[in-house]
Design a protein around this nucleic acid. Structure first.
Lengths: 209, 209, 209, 209
DNA sequence: CATGAATGAGTTTTCATTCAT
DNA sequence: GATGAATGAAAACTCATTCAT
């Protein structure tokens, strides 16, 4: 009878998982919002966990592809590549705020299943970061620093607005869904890359000596 | 009959809320872990939401007190006060990883009740930040910048390790509960304060001219 | 799997509500008696109150239809119409003693929901009574009297045996479920109509003068 | 600390039992309304059923005493005695609407305990009614009729306004708690005694013949 | 005389899932 | 490809009661 019921279910699920969390969302809620019988969800995704896995996989597939897309750039300039990655990921996240927001939240929970799905992507992501930073150190583009702590800072910048979307909106009056935010926030990230990460020419000379 | 049952309940609740989220934790789980009858939880906290509110209030009460404690310092030096606040909050959060972690996560959910409790504290916190930065700008301690975006960056730094505790541990092999982490991460934050936030003497001269 | 589970639930509910009252009956009791899983009750009636509403609506729907059925008669003779209504209602109530009994009892409680359902029917019923009595007064069939107080008396006669079913059985040894009772009690009601309500021919003449 | 806590409990219980029924009222409700700790109720009445028994006994003790008080009158005139009883009982019930209302309702339930308490009083009451009517028949005061059916009618008249207090108020706009109602309704009952019950002088002569 | 703390048993309700259609 | 009916299990919550104080 209904077309695209699968799509409707995923859309509803993302919205509700974002609002109420995975555990806080019932199959009935999703069925109601997507105007589908709850048995239909089981038909498409086997069970609730299947639907969650589908959403998370969907998110990370695209996330990782953004990192892979211009990886060749790393051989030319780590800084340029990192800026490109930042822009692409930020854009993707802004266009998928709800999905981004709920995936980042769900990642922090003790759910074995979710973390298993993620671990592959996390390791891939870590590999790319390591390459970026290592090459950046070699080429004296980046100021030497502990890689894990750089990852924390960089990922922190990228995640913050989506984890705290409510806080941004209600306390700081910053709206991550607006076009303007993406532009402005990208400048902040680039600022971090330029000032905190990049070795200044003066320092560079010193470092060489 | 039993003593300190209220305390035991809160302790168990924090641990379970952190592991499985609020919705993912059942009263029975809490009752079992705290070795209390589940009716006792209702007796002390009215209902599940009451227990959540209690935990969140407890967290923010102490959080805000760390900001208020040395507020007088702001008249002397914004930078010193901010460093002091960073150290105190980081320490408090490291000593209460589970509570911190789950409160930050729950804040991002659409629960009206939780957000109502928080809003008071968020506004207070925002007030302190505003004072710090405004005075810092006046005194040319800080490089001029949009306050809300500075708040995002600073809070982002403070929250990151606790929101992504799993990621730190399993992917980056960084353990936020260890003494060493607190010291090292404080240096990172201070680095941000010194490099990103602080106006360099050279710039300062230029700014004066 | 099972058929007619809805019907079985209603039957069980009526019996148990009558015996133990609405509050005194648990969903489990109903589920057990109707040999249905208690979730099935929720499926059909949403919740316990929904089941109560269904029963009450069911009762009044039929009750009112008895009053409406021969309403045309009122243009010919109020007395004949009233006797007809009395006979039909008494018969209906005798055939549905448990339902009648518990609905009359539950009506007297402060449950907002129940009273909302009833109010529509009560107003309809009042309208019919008013018509009966007004026309009866006009035609000098009935001795003039306060209509509300006549309604109390008539409804009192109709309700008494069902509200006090236990008392009738155990103290007076009158059994409202037996065929004989219906016949005998109808005579009592008709007696009231003839003697208390009807204007005697002697009085009628006086009234005309 | 508190004085009259027992009295306060009974008052609260009567009000709540009337509004929500015995089963629909919780000890906590009573404790809250009477501003007493719920353990205090247990202290005074042992348990919830004890409190119910106390209320019912209290009602019937006084009810029966109204019938006994002027019993000597029956030797002089059944009609006068019945009128006196009607007046006294109606007055008592009007002054104790809530108690009357809830006792009559609770009587109709299958609670073994309640019915045991009542049975003694019911039998006493029946004995008085029997005497009244028998003597009335003997003396040709009353038109011969089945005693049980007369009891139904008389008790029906007395109970109706209290069982259907809501209906009277909301549909008929008759307020059983007002002084006026008692007077007016007593006339209705006396009307029944005079017209339905009493043998008219004309009939009397015929009966003698 | 009265109560705060605590509880075991029970309540209604919700949930994800199943299965015949 | 989709669903209405049904359910077992578990959830949150309520209740009357107990007992040390």
């Amino acid at each position: 009878m209904k077309k695209n019921s699968k799509e409707a279910i995923v859309k509803a699920a993302i919205s509700l998982f974002n609002s109420n969390g995975y555990s806080g969302t019932s199959m009935r809620d999703i069925a109601t919002l997507s105007k589908v019988n709850s048995a239909t969800i089981a038909y498409h995704f086997e069970n609730k966990l299947g639907l969650l896995e589908y959403c998370i996989t969907y998110f990370f597939e695209q996330y990782i592809s953004k990192m892979e897309e211009h990886f060749a750039l790393v051989d030319y300039s780590s800084k340029e590549y990192l800026k490109r990655v930042a822009a692409d990921l930020l854009h993707y996240q802004c266009e998928n705020i709800e999905l981004t927001s709920f995936v980042y939240r769900e990642m922090s929970m003790d759910s074995q299943v979710v973390r298993e799905v993620m671990s592959t992507y996390s390791l891939k992501e870590k590999y790319y970061f390591q390459k970026i930073f290592e090459k950046g150190f070699e080429r004296k583009e980046f100021r030497p620093h502990s890689i894990p702590y750089l990852i924390i800072q960089f990922k922190g910048l990228l995640m913050m607005p989506f984890i705290n979307a409510h806080y941004l909106r209600e306390v700081l009056f910053i709206f991550p869904n607006e076009r303007f935010f993406e532009q402005k926030y990208l400048k902040e990230i680039n600022g971090w890359i330029e000032n905190t990460l990049t070795l200044k020419s003066l320092e560079k000379k010193e470092a060489i000596l």
